[in-house]
Amino acid sequence: MKITDETIDYVSALAKLVLSQEEKEKAEVDLGNILGYIETMNELDTEGIEPMSHAFPLKNVFREDVVTNGDDRDNVLSNAPVKKDGSFVVPKTVE
């Protein structure tokens, strides 16, 4: 599969990555090779096969509706790169 600049730009935007020109060129080659190899799957006829997410057929795993947690703010915020007033902080998002 031939991977274009546009494809690399598109997937890197989805993954929130910026690549240098050199990285882009390498990614084009690598992704092309890898996806090309992946396409060998197409040799297989999978008509009528149900796609399988879980190899072991579990179902209906639930918890009961009970509050088990208390205030854990200090723990949850302990790794925040920036915090203020008990909140995580990001650059302005609200217009």
Binding site: A15, L17, L35, I38
Partner: peptide, 19 residues
């Protein structure tokens, strides 16, 4: 993300986003 991840991780995230 660009500074924090290595190339192999970036590669797989891009393959993943693509597929």
């Amino acid at each position: 993300r660009s500074e924090g991840f290595g190339m192999e991780v970036k590669r797989r995230m891009m393959i993943g986003a693509f597929v």
